[in-house]
């Protein structure tokens, strides 16, 4: 899984290395497939992704082309459901119940659970082998601060993979202020910069 919302908050350097080293046959879990020229979009354009589990592919025409040509499998998940499935995996939950998707094709093949008269879809946890996430700055404990709207999926993804790799723009010698940490370093296995 890879953090980022379009171009914002994407771990661009690690993605560049994946492209350079032709690391392919990937299942990509992310909000979107970005734009063709940038970050996750480059993984699509270079045909390194066999399956994408995302909420949106509309900003990358190559994703749509590969989907229609049968070259790319795409599982479209509503954005709020996608993040909660990832959060559930990281939080030790067996899934989440959401009203989103009831009465639509998103419901197909899923259990509908009724609670106090309201219908919800049972959406299962979503976990990855590796999470690659962005940070604005990090310290040697792996504690990370994410500025502005770069947080997006990075915070949930940090909790939901066997190996978590953090790409900070800056490494600080001094520990970060504990009150200003977005992602606790205990989730982070490696820092790459």
């Amino acid at each position: 899984m890879i953090g980022g919302f379009l171009r914002c908050g994407s771990p661009v350097k690690i993605i560049d290395e994946l492209v350079k080293n032709h690391i392919g046959n990937l299942t990509l879990i992310a909000n979107d497939t970005s734009l063709p020229e940038y970050d996750r979009g480059l993984l699509i354009v270079n045909k390194l992704v066999k399956k994408a589990i995302v909420s949106h592919i509309g900003t990358n025409p190559e994703s749509g082309r590969q989907l229609n040509a049968g070259e790319l499998e795409v599982e479209l998940v509503p954005m709020g459901t996608l993040v909660e499935r990832i959060r559930a995996a990281g939080a030790g939950l067996g899934g989440i119940l959401t009203p989103t998707g009831i009465g639509t094709i998103v419901e197909n093949g899923k259990d509908v659970v009724e609670v106090d008269g309201h219908k919800y879809l049972l959406e299962k946890p979503l976990r990855a082998d590796v999470a690659i996430i962005y940070a604005t700055k990090a310290d040697k404990f792996g504690n990370a601060f994410l500025d502005g709207t770069t947080r997006n999926f990075n915070t949930a993804m940090a909790t939901a993979a066997d190996i978590v790799i953090l790409e900070p723009e800056e490494i600080c010698d001094e520990p970060l202020n504990p009150a200003e940490i977005t992602i606790p370093g205990i989730f982070v296995d490696y820092i790459a910069f």
């Binding site: 909420s55 509309g58 749509g64 509503p78 954005m79 709020g80 989103t100 998707g101």
Partner: peptide, 15 residues
């Protein structure tokens, strides 16, 4: 034809 994906639209409409 065109399949951009739902993004946050399903959640927004429901919520």
């Amino acid at each position: 034809s065109v399949i951009p994906g739902m993004g946050g639209a399903m959640d927004l409409t429901v919520g």
